[in-house]
C-alpha cells in the first residue's frame, strides 16, 4: 500500500512556480528521500501533503485519503519543519504538553523517552535554548504522538554531529516500528545514510527518482589532489573523470566509477594530500543529470 500518493501535482503561486507535474509514491514503512536545492519545490510539496496549500492541479493523498478533502488524516502525520520558531517565554514541557493535549492518549512517557534520547532539558524556557536545542523540541513535538507518517523538512540543520547520529538512529527505530518517513533535505549524504529511495527535485520538477543502491553506484566524488611539484593535467585524464582543474600543484576533478582506479593511478605519482569529498548538490545536478538526463 502506498502511504503517499502524489499525482500530477502542480502548484503556482500567482505567476511564480511552485511545483510542476510532480508524481511520487512512497510505500508503507519506507524511508524516502526528497532532495533538491533551496527553492526547488520541496516545501511546496510538503505543504501540499500536509493539506496546508491547495494544489493548482493534480492530487496528493496520504493513506489513500485526500490531504485537502479529508483533513482528519493530518492526525496521523508527524511533521518537523525546517525552521522552528516557538513562543520564547514558554517552557519546553508546556509546549510539548500542549501538543500532546490534542491526542487522545497519554504522551508523557513518550515525551520523556524522546527528550532523553535527544538530550533535551524539558524544564528550560524555549528562550534559553540554542537553535539546535529548539530543533530537538521540534523533533520531540513531531514524534510524541507516534505518527504513522513522519515528514521531515531539513531535519538536521542546527544539530551537532552526535545529535544527528542519535536522530538518524531514532528515525530508523521509528521506521522499524512501521512508520513511513518522508525525508526532505538538500544534503545528499544524510539522505544516503537513511533512505531506500530518493527523488531529486529541481526547478519544481522531479527530475530523477532512484533507488539508493543505484545512486551509490553512479555517484560522483569530488577528488582533490595536492602534490609537491607541478601536476600534468593529462595524467588524470581517465575514464570517469570530468571537470578537471589544475592550479599549480593542486588538481581537482569529479569522478564517477570505481574509486580503486583513482587510487591505483595516484600510486604512480608522489602526492602530499588527497581529499575525497561529496560534491555540492548543484554539481551533482549539473554534471550527473545534465549529462545523463
Amino acid at each position: 500500500m502506498s502511504v503517499i500518493e502524489i499525482k500530477n501535482l502542480t502548484k503556482h503561486y500567482g505567476k511564480s512556480r511552485g511545483v510542476i507535474d510532480v508524481n511520487l509514491e512512497v510505500a508503507e514503512g519506507e524511508i524516502f528521500g526528497f532532495i533538491g536545492p533551496n527553492g526547488a519545490g520541496k516545501s511546496t510539496t510538503i505543504r501540499t501533503l500536509l493539506g496546508l496549500i491547495y494544489p493548482t492541479s493534480g492530487s496528493a493523498k496520504i493513506f489513500g485519503k485526500s490531504c485537502i478533502e479529508q483533513p482528519e488524516v493530518r492526525k496521523e502525520v508527524g511533521y518537523l519543519p525546517s525552521e522552528v520558531f516557538y513562543y520564547d517565554n514558554m517552557r519546553v514541557i508546556d509546549l510539548l504538553k500542549y501538543s500532546a493535549s490534542f491526542y487522545k492518549k497519554d504522551c508523557s512517557k513518550r515525551i520523556n523517552e524522546l527528550a532523553e534520547i535527544m538530550d533535551l532539558d524539558l524544564k528550560k524556557k524555549i528562550d534559553d535554548l540554542s537553535f539546535g536545542n529548539k530543533k530537538k523540541v521540534g523533533i520531540v513535538q513531531g514524534l510524541l504522538h507516534e505518527p504513522k507518517l513522519i515528514i521531515l523538512d531539513e531535519p538536521t540543520s542546527g544539530l551537532d554531529p552526535l545529535m544527528q547520529h542519535k536522530f538518524f538512529d531514532l528515525i530508523e527505530q521509528e521506521s522499524k516500528k512501521g512508520a513511513t518517513v518522508f525525508f526532505s533535505s538538500h544534503i545528499l549524504s544524510e539522505v544516503q545514510r537513511l533512505c531506500s529511495r530518493v527523488a531529486f527535485i529541481k526547478d519544481g520538477r522531479v527530475i530523477k527518482l532512484e533507488k539508493m543502491s543505484d545512486l551509490r553506484e553512479n555517484n560522483y566524488k569530488l577528488i582533490k589532489v595536492e602534490a609537491g611539484s607541478q601536476l600534468d593535467k593529462s595524467f588524470f585524464a581517465m575514464p570517469g573523470a570530468s571537470k578537471l582543474e589544475v592550479k599549480g600543484s593542486s588538481v581537482s576533478f569529479l569522478f564517477k566509477g570505481d574509486i580503486n582506479k583513482v587510487v591505483k593511478k595516484l600510486a604512480e605519482t608522489s602526492i602530499s594530500n588527497l581529499l575525497v569529498e561529496e560534491p555540492e548538490l548543484e554539481e551533482i545536478f549539473m554534471h550527473y543529470y545534465a549529462k545523463e538526463g
Partner: peptide, 17 residues
C-alpha cells in the same frame, strides 16, 4: 500573532484548518 511554523503544527495537531 502565532508564528507560521507553529500555526502549521497546531493545524496538524487539530487535524482541521
Amino acid at each position: 500573532l502565532e508564528d507560521e511554523t507553529q500555526q502549521q503544527i497546531t493545524i496538524l495537531h487539530m487535524g482541521s484548518v
